[in-house]
């Protein structure tokens, strides 16, 4: 669950984003809480694999204060099983989150594929999937735009890299992170959404999970959040017409030796 990044962005664009009294939370109540968009796409990925004929059970798990709503959304999209691992979000970091998720995957007896979003759109950290993969001893493939099973145990992934697409194959089980290029997630019908509201996610207590040696101790604490002021120094180019303004701008840029 994240704060709607578009709403946060709109406040920021207007210069009206406020930090709460604790010095670190965004408290404007009009900012909705949503499922991280990349995570919706990760669910979409699972659903497309199933649509392509892969027989599977799709579990969706979330670590958070009360992720009921987003898990119900997952059910409406088509998830089979949903689980919440309730924690005080102020006390976990990426490491602890990954340790809890690893414990959850172990409690299922493992998974054939673990699908994550490329990053959470609040912190932009993008560390949980790689930590999780290492904790489970699984290979990790990041930033996927397409995922396809090419045999019962081999998955082919198209990755979006700065040099264009890279195609890789890996044996299951593996961890894969989904990028926005994957395409839009399906939008559940009103009927499915209504039905999903009655679903109560399974509650999994951290204490009931096998967390391995390290446990789920957080290493990183967020102590402060702030908005960096941008000091504008824009010189507006006036002109009696678009042509005059364009001419003036080009002369300025030539005078500054920015262009030839």
């Amino acid at each position: 669950e994240v704060l709607d990044p578009d709403a946060v962005n709109n406040y920021a664009l207007a210069g009206k984003l406020l930090i709460g009294a604790d010095g670190k939370s965004l408290t404007q109540t009009s900012i909705p809480r949503l499922m991280n968009a990349y995570d919706e796409q990760a669910i979409e990925c699972a659903l497309r694999l199933r649509d392509a004929g892969v027989e599977c059970t799709i579990h969706v798990v979330s670590v958070g204060t009360d992720p009921t709503k987003i898990l119900q959304h997952a059910v409406a999209m088509g998830a089979d099983e949903v689980a919440a691992i309730p924690v005080d979000t102020g006390t976990v970091d990426g490491f602890a989150t990954a340790a809890l998720l690893a414990g959850f995957v172990r409690s299922l007896g493992g998974a054939d594929l673990v699908l994550c979003g490329r990053q959470a759109s609040d912190g932009d950290q993008g560390v949980v999937p790689a930590l999780l993969g290492e904790m489970l001893g699984l290979p990790i493939v990041t930033i996927a735009r397409a995922v396809e099973m090419v045999s019962a145990t081999t998955v082919r992934v198209t990755r979006v890299t700065p040099d264009g697409d890279e195609i890789v194959e890996v044996a299951c089980p593996a961890v894969i992170t989904i990028s926005n290029e994957f395409g839009d997630p399906r939008y559940p019908t009103g009927m499915r959404t209504m039905k999903a509201r009655k679903v109560k996610p399974q509650q999994v207590a951290p204490a009931d999970l096998d967390l391995g040696e390290g446990g789920a101790r957080a290493r990183v604490t967020m102590t402060r959040q702030f908005v960096e002021p941008i000091i504008g120094r824009c010189e507006f180019i006036q002109g009696s017409s678009p042509a005059a303004a364009a001419q003036e701008l080009v002369s300025r840029l030539r005078a500054d030796r920015t262009i030839e």
Partner: peptide
């Protein structure tokens, strides 16, 4: 160790503290 990092795609900055005995 105090780290200031970009968050919300650059809309905000977050200060993280790493206090444990382990490295970071």
């Amino acid at each position: 160790v105090k780290v200031t990092a970009s968050a919300y795609g650059g809309d905000t900055r977050v200060v993280y503290e790493l206090t444990g005995a382990e490295s970071c």
